[in-house]
């Protein structure tokens, strides 16, 4: 595989369905980083991921994975990546031990010993059928399989959805371990922003098929801020200066995209650090501009 800067490079991705369009989405995942792919259900995350995996044909744009166009170098690229879906793709009647044998023929670099290590670590039974495992166990099995064939890039679609916080944290820790190798990269789609707060280096936020923002997570959360004011003061604030505002009878909270500029302009107001969840909340309602909790 040739040298590349970005593990994933999506440019002007457009995919049209009847009633939904994923339009002009562009973002990059630098090599050695974790990109959190955020958006509500139905925002286009899964469509984007399936376009990246060449499961869906996109109408416009380009996608390169590990420095190669996924459509023209599909086999070469896919030999180096792992995909994890929100639902386990393995047949119910297979056992993890049988699955290991099957996957050892599918992946050239399948590491059976590593797979069994993960099974042990996740307390997964080797000989119980997949159909008899709990949701959390199924997801752990899928992740164990994804981590056991030396993939450089993991593309995951809502892997932590529906899991309890303990299992979710366990899985996130595994991802962080995987990232110890600086050749590895992860795209992690989720609407659970706390997960991404914990592990993501970069975030891309899409809504209704449109890209809202993309960039370094720490920079974005530092640039943005929650600006608070009393109800009487809210009338003096220009709507152009904030993304949207949560208004109550006592006052208002606004998300501002440039904390430094807002602090200069509204020096008497209170500014608080924001997080991905709040950013998502305020950005989703940006067209309404003012909303009540």
């Amino acid at each position: 595989m040739e040298a590349y800067q970005n593990a994933i490079d999506v440019q002007h991705l457009t995919k049209r369905f009847d009633g939904f369009t994923l339009g002009d989405v562009s973002f990059s995942v630098p090599k050695g980083s974790i990109m959190g792919f955020i958006g509500q259900n139905g925002s286009g995350k899964t469509t984007s991921i399936r376009c990246m995996l060449n499961l869906l044909r996109y109408d416009e744009g380009s996608i390169s994975l590990l420095g190669k166009d996924v459509r023209t170098h599909e086999r070469e690229v896919k030999a180096q990546l792992s995909a994890v879906f929100d639902e386990i793709p393995f047949h119910d009647s297979l056992t993890p031990a049988q699955l290991s044998t099957v996957l050892s023929y599918l992946f050239e670099e399948w590491d059976e010993a590593l797979f069994y290590q993960y099974l042990e670590r996740f307390s997964l039974p080797k000989k119980r059928k997949v159909g008899d495992l709990s949701k959390g166990m199924k997801m752990k099995l899928q992740i164990a399989a994804a981590l056991s064939h030396n993939a450089r890039l993991m593309i995951m679609d809502e892997p932590t959805t529906g899991l309890d916080p303990v299992v979710r944290n366990e899985i996130l820790d595994i991802f962080l371990e995987y990232m110890q190798d600086e050749e590895h990269s992860i795209l992690l789609s989720s609407h659970i922003t706390t997960d991404l707060d914990k592990i993501a280096d970069y975030v891309t936020f899409i809504h209704n098929g449109k890209l809202l923002l993309t960039g370094n997570k720490d920079e974005l959360t530092t640039q943005h801020a929650i600006m608070r004011c009393k109800a009487a003061e809210f009338q003096d604030i220009s709507p152009e200066d904030y993304i949207s505002a949560r208004v109550t009878e006592y006052g208002a909270e606004m998300l501002v995209s440039s904390r430094t500029q807002a602090e200069k302009k509204y020096s008497g107001l209170v500014f608080d650090k924001t997080n991905l969840e709040e950013m998502m909340l305020f950005y989703v309602r940006r067209e309404k501009k003012e909303w009540k909790p």
């Binding site: 995996l53 086999r75 690229v77 393995f90 047949h91």
Partner: peptide, 18 residues
């Protein structure tokens, strides 16, 4: 039919594309 409904086909084509 099982490969389609279980998601195996999606997994296989995501990982190998062949």
């Amino acid at each position: 039919g099982l490969d389609m409904t279980s998601g195996w086909m999606r997994f296989l084509f995501s990982e190998t594309g062949d």
